[in-house]
C-alpha cells in the first residue's frame, strides 16, 4: 500500500492545493484574454504568473536551460518533496508526464527570422546565418525529459525514473508507476508529477487546427508517494470532473490526470 506524503502545485488559480480545489468547486476560472494568443479565434488562456524560482534553483545560471514546463515543475516538485526524509533522495524514484514540448519561439526567433527570404524558408540561410544564430542550448531546453532531469538534479533524486508523454493518461501513468515502484520495493519513496504549458502561439494554433477548442492552460502537479495506508475519503465527484477543471484552468494536458489528487 502507498500513501501520498506531500503535494505541490503551480496553477493559474494559485499554489495552495486545498484553495485551488475550493475555487474550482465554486466555479472560479482563471481563463482570461492572453496577448500571447492574439490573432486566434479565441484568445483565452489560463496563464500562471511567474513562477518565482527563488529557493527552487541551486544554480541561477541553470535558469537559461529551463523551458516553461520545467519552470512550472520546479516549485511544485520542491513543495511535494518537503516531507522527504533526510538522506532518502538517493534512492527516490521520479516519474514525470509531459505533453508535446513546444519549440521555444522566443529563443529561436532571431535564428528563424534569419532563415527567411521573401516570406519563404531559404535553405542557404538556414545553413548559414540561421545556423549561426541558433541558440546552442536549445536542444537541451526542449527535450521532453528535461522536466525530469531538472527535478532530479535540483533535488538529488537518483532512483528509478521515466518520462511518459501524452495526454491526461500520461499523468495517471506517472502516478501509477510511482505507486508501483514503492509497492514493489524498487524505491522507498517516489515522486510523481506532470507539468505542461500550452500557452504559446504555435501550440495554441495547432490545437485549433486539431479541433481542440478548450482554451489552453499551464500547470504542474507533483506528489511524493511513500509506504503506508492511504488516508482520506474518496473525492466528491465534481472535483474529479475533468470538465470543471478545464473550465477553471484550461486544457493542461497530462496534468489533468492528476487533478483528482488535489482534494
Amino acid at each position: 500500500m502507498t500513501r501520498i506524503l506531500g503535494i505541490g502545485v503551480v496553477t493559474a488559480l494559485g499554489d495552495d492545493p486545498a484553495a485551488v480545489c475550493k475555487l474550482v468547486a465554486g466555479g472560479a476560472s482563471a481563463l482570461a484574454a492572453s496577448a500571447t494568443l492574439a490573432g486566434l479565434p479565441d484568445t483565452r488562456a489560463a496563464s500562471v504568473v511567474g513562477p518565482d524560482l527563488a529557493g527552487w534553483l541551486m544554480r541561477k545560471k541553470d535558469a537559461r536551460l529551463l523551458a516553461r514546463a520545467a519552470r512550472l515543475a520546479l516549485p511544485a516538485a520542491g513543495r511535494a518533496l518537503v516531507g522527504l526524509p533526510a538522506g532518502a533522495a538517493e534512492e527516490t524514484a521520479v516519474f514525470v508526464a509531459v505533453g508535446r514540448e513546444p519549440p521555444d519561439d522566443a529563443d529561436a526567433e532571431p535564428s528563424l527570422l534569419a532563415m527567411e527570404r521573401d516570406g519563404q524558408l531559404d535553405r542557404d540561410r538556414l545553413g548559414g546565418r540561421g545556423r549561426e544564430l541558433y541558440p546552442p542550448l536549445l536542444p537541451l531546453k526542449t527535450l521532453p525529459n528535461m522536466v525530469l532531469a531538472h527535478v532530479s538534479i535540483q533535488h538529488g533524486l537518483r532512483g528509478e525514473n521515466g518520462t511518459f508523454a501524452g495526454d491526461a493518461a500520461a499523468g495517471a501513468q506517472a502516478l501509477r508507476a510511482a505507486e508501483l515502484a514503492v509497492e514493489e520495493g524498487r524505491a522507498p519513496f517516489a515522486l510523481a508529477g506532470a507539468s505542461f504549458s500550452g500557452v504559446d502561439l504555435a501550440s495554441a494554433r495547432d490545437r485549433w487546427r486539431l479541433g481542440q477548442v478548450a482554451p489552453p492552460g499551464e500547470a504542474a502537479v507533483f506528489v511524493l508517494v511513500g509506504p503506508g495506508e492511504p488516508r482520506g475519503e474518496p473525492l466528491p465527484w465534481r472535483l474529479a470532473d475533468a470538465e470543471a477543471w478545464e473550465r477553471a484552468l484550461g486544457d493542461c494536458g497530462p496534468v489533468a490526470g492528476l487533478w483528482h489528487l488535489l482534494g
Partner: peptide, 17 residues
C-alpha cells in the same frame, strides 16, 4: 498503452516498462 520520452534512454525504459 504508453510512450516513454526519455531521450536516448526512451526505448530501453519502454522495454523495462
Amino acid at each position: 498503452r504508453s510512450t516513454v520520452s526519455t531521450a536516448c534512454t526512451s526505448s530501453s525504459q519502454a522495454i523495462g516498462e
